[in-house]
């Protein structure tokens, strides 16, 4: 029973990070209408920046986090200006392939410049843990969850309680209509896409603390984020939360209860992708 509770808690904590990555992806899909196959690469950039700050300048990742968020927001804005913007009205295939190419480019640029090694970040709180009754929770994990929750809260507040958020939702629902009532759609797109990248980068900072930084670290998170937004329904931000929880907890359960589960838990999200897609396509058939 304790083991079960512990497993649940671990899964839920993990899902905070997933939700952070996935909500960024969902924001780009929902508002800009772009499925960003390079989303994981912004996470990777965040992770490397955190590592660089810590290893080269001795700055704790949590302190450099705001700076990194702003920096990657800028990278996202640049990406939007030079590429995304030009395929907004192109067929979905073009959009998909463009971001796919971007992902390959960024990932291999990192590989070229930094090599394939994983880089770990050491922090004083790395080995700390919290004791909640019978349950013990890793300090960085709890921290990451707290941060993710706070950021998601801020994101949802922005979307539902501010003018910018309302504009974003208006654009998401009806681009033409939004244009007609005087919303600067291009600006909203730029902001949404850049925020999406910044969210990924923040997740990357957390990943560098929890795991490591490496050129390919983003890929697996991006794939899981895809699984989540597919489960949630494209662009559905609220669905992202429960889908993330479902994925996090399922993975934890597999890790704990399936023999040799460590190797298989990474396959859980593939099953989820497959299951959801097949179910959805056959329910909506014809």
């Amino acid at each position: 029973m304790d083991l079960f509770a512990q497993t649940l808690v671990n899964g839920l904590l993990q899902s905070g990070l997933y939700a952070l990555v996935a909500s960024g992806l969902a924001l780009a899909v929902g508002v800009v209408g772009i499925v960003n196959f390079a989303h994981g690469e912004y996470l990777m950039i965040g992770a490397f920046l955190a590592w660089a700050g810590s290893a080269l300048l001795g700055v704790d990742p949590l302190l450099s986090l705001p700076v990194i968020a702003v920096a990657v927001y800028g990278v996202g804005a640049l990406t939007y200006r030079v590429s995304i913007r030009h395929v907004l009205l192109a067929p979905e295939l073009n959009q998909m392939l463009l971001t796919f190419g971007l992902g390959i480019l960024l990932q291999n640029l990192a590989l070229m410049l930094l090599g394939g090694n994983t880089r770990t970040v050491s922090t004083p709180y790395q080995a700390s843990s919290l004791q909640l009754g019978e349950l013990s929770v890793g300090g960085p994990k709890a921290l990451a969850f707290g941060l993710a929750a706070a950021l998601l809260g801020a994101l949802y507040f922005t979307l539902y309680r501010t003018t910018l958020g309302r504009q974003m939702r208006a654009v998401a629902q009806n681009r033409r209509g939004a244009q007609l009532i005087g919303i600067d759609v291009d600006r909203v797109y730029l902001i949404a896409f850049s925020v999406s990248c910044a969210l990924a980068a923040v997740a990357g900072v957390l990943v560098s603390v929890l795991l490591f930084a490496s050129p390919t670290v983003g890929l697996v998170f991006a794939l899981k984020a895809f699984a989540i937004i597919v489960m949630a329904g494209l662009g559905n931000l609220t669905g992202v939360l429960w889908a993330s929880a479902l994925l996090g907890v399922s993975e934890a359960l597999v890790q704990t209860y399936v023999p040799g589960g460590g190797g298989w838990s990474d396959a859980v999200f593939f099953l989820m992708i497959f299951g959801t897609l097949v179910l959805r396509s056959y329910r909506g058939a014809r």
Binding site: S83, L97, L98, F100, G101, L102, G103, I104, L105, L106, Q107, N108, L109, L111, M112
Partner: peptide, 9 residues
Amino acid sequence: LVVYGLVLM
């Protein structure tokens, strides 16, 4: 693969 990414874009 950088080349492939760039060429694709």
